[in-house]
Every structure is written in C-alpha cells, then in structure tokens.
C-alpha cells in the first residue's frame, strides 16, 4: 500500500457559473498534518466537503484512503472523521447522548463504546460534564466535543474545517496538541484554519486563493522558497504614514503592516537601515527600532497574495 492517503487530481467545483474550487491538485501522506489556508470564500470548505463525499465534484477527482470520492462516497465516509465548520452536533442532547448516538451509529459494541466514550471525554476534557446539555457549553468546549465525536470510530483520516474558530488562544494550543497526538498515532489530518500561526504546526501546507492553489510545501520550504530577501521590522509612532512613505521608495520591495509595526522586505539590509533612518529624520516618523527578523508564514502569505493581486 502506498503512503499517500489523499490524492487530489484537478478537483473542481462550480456553483452555476461561479468556480469555487478551480483545478486543485495535491497529495497527503499517512500521518501528516496537512494545512489548508486561505481567506474567506477561498474554497477551503468546498474542497473538504468534496473530499468527505458530501459534495460531488464538477470536474477532476480525488481518492481518499484509496476510494474515489465520486464513485464510492459511502466507502470514503466509512473511513474518515469530519468536523464541519459550523457546529453540527445536537445542541439539545447532552454530551454523553451525542457521544452515544454517534458511537452506536458507527456500530460500536457496548464494550467498545464505553471505552471510546471515556477516551473522547478525556481528550475533550469534558469529564464531569457528561450530563450537560451540549448547547449550554462554551464554544471551545463544543469544538472539543465535536472533535471527540469525529474521531470516536478511530478513522484513519480526519478532516477538520476550522476547528479552532471561536476558540480562545489557550484552548487553541490544547486543540493543536490533540491534533498532534492523533497524527502521532498515524492518523492523517487535513485541517483548515484562518490563523497563520497555527499553520506552523502543519507538516505541509497549501495556500488557496479564489479556488486556486497559489503555493504549497512545508512551512520551512515556503519561507525559504518565497522569501529570499531580508525582512526588516520597523517600529514607529505612526505606522500608516510610515507605510505610505516607505512603500514609494525604490529600495523597499514589499511593505506591510503588522499591528504596531511594519515589515519591509529589502534588497540590502545595511543600505535599507540607512535609508530608513534618513526618512525618519526628514519626515519625523519617529522610528524607534529596526530589526532584521526571521520571516513568518504570514510574511510569506502576504507576499504571495500581493503577487496574486498584482497579476490580476
């Protein structure tokens, strides 16, 4: 058996004339955490729903666990776990009732169900809340329960569609620990996220924009492949004014705002430092700090999306 669990081949989905997913191709290996990134409406959920056998593709195909998503969607469904972007457990049932229901539906025996329930409650950290009505739980707790239910039957492949949206940062870290544990057990995880820092946890990433893949690789590869020039982080009083000034300089290749500071990619670090000091003095920009930084994925994606925008 090959090590490739998910093979996607020119997968395309059209809603009427609108192309939501446009000839997307990628492979995912066993035990990998595969990140799926893109802005709102990029086509992440649509791709995942096709891979889960929920939606037929318009063109192209994909195999999940060796089964064709269009020809054998039922086989695909048997072997995967899916956590949808919108909470999809029963809010009017208790935590335990939800787990029992899905356990039974997946055909778990009494003994196995009991064991898996304990395990799901453990990983979801919901012990003691078995009898709580699901709808009354805070968002992060619900998400953990949803993950617990999605992996109750120990699927080999798990699709998580924005599992951490609406979850606070501390809980988010815990969530990723869970995902890491799954992957360590050999489960293949395909996950979408809005949070770029979360993408760093992934073994492989693809960036999707307007239905098309615009970049892919491991976080390290992406950084070294696309960011070849040094990046300076500039701290100053008025970032917006500074940005509009620096943007126009020929030595500044790429400029973007990161909260209270700017990231400027330049050709030559030393020369650029001089230029920035000069600009600061001439225009009263009040630059307090300039530092060369290791590029983050965010830098990469901003760069890539800028390139895309320039193309169109």
């Amino acid at each position: 058996m090959s090590d490739t669990v998910i093979e996607v081949d020119h997968l395309t989905k059209k809603f009427g004339k609108f192309t939501a997913v446009d000839h997307v191709s990628f492979d995912v290996k066993r035990g990998e955490i595969f990140g799926f990134l893109g802005a709102n409406g990029a086509g992440k959920s649509t791709t995942i729903r096709m891979l889960c056998g929920l939606l037929a593709s318009t063109e192209g195909t994909a195999r999940v666990g060796g089964f064709d998503i269009n020809k054998e969607p039922e086989k695909v469904k048997e072997n995967i776990g899916y956590m949808s972007q919108k909470f999809s457990l029963y809010e009017d049932l208790t935590v335990e009732e939800n787990i029992n229901f899905y356990g039974r539906v997946y055909g778990l025996s009494n003994h196995l169900l009991k064991e898996r329930k304990e395990w799901a409650l453990e990983i979801a950290n919901l012990r003691g809340r078995e009898r709580s009505i699901t709808g009354t739980l805070p968002g992060g707790w619900k998400q953990r329960l949803a993950l617990g239910c999605a992996v109750l039957h120990r699927p080999k492949t798990v699709f998580l569609d924005e599992p951490t949206s609406g979850v606070d940062p501390v809980m988010r870290r815990k969530f990723w620990e869970l995902i890491n544990d799954l992957s360590a057990e050999g489960v293949t995880v395909l996950v979408t996220t809005h949070f770029l820092e979360e993408a760093e946890y992934c073994n492989d990433i693809i960036l999707i924009n307007a239905g098309k893949i615009i970049a892919g690789g491991s976080p390290k590869e992406l950084k070294s492949n696309y960011i070849k020039t040094p990046i300076l982080e500039v701290q100053c009083a008025n970032v917006i004014d500074a940005m509009s000034l620096i943007e126009k300089q020929p030595w500044a290749l790429e400029t973007s705002v990161f909260g209270t500071h700017l990231h400027v990619s330049v050709e030559n670090e030393e020369a650029a430092r001089g230029h920035i000091q000069q600009l600061s003095m001439q225009n009263g920009l009040d630059v307090t700090h300039v530092e060369k930084i290791i590029p983050s994925l965010e830098d990469v994606f901003i760069y890539l999306l800028d390139q895309e925008a320039k193309k169109n």
Binding site: G53, L54, Y82, K86, S88, V105
Partner: peptide, 13 residues
C-alpha cells in the same frame, strides 16, 4: 437548518 444533517450525512447512516 442546524447543520446536524451534515454530520449524519458523513456518517455511515
């Protein structure tokens, strides 16, 4: 409406 059908749909029911 509540999207619980999607979870049913992806299960072997």
């Amino acid at each position: 409406e509540l999207n619980t059908m999607e979870q049913i749909d992806v299960s072997p029911i």
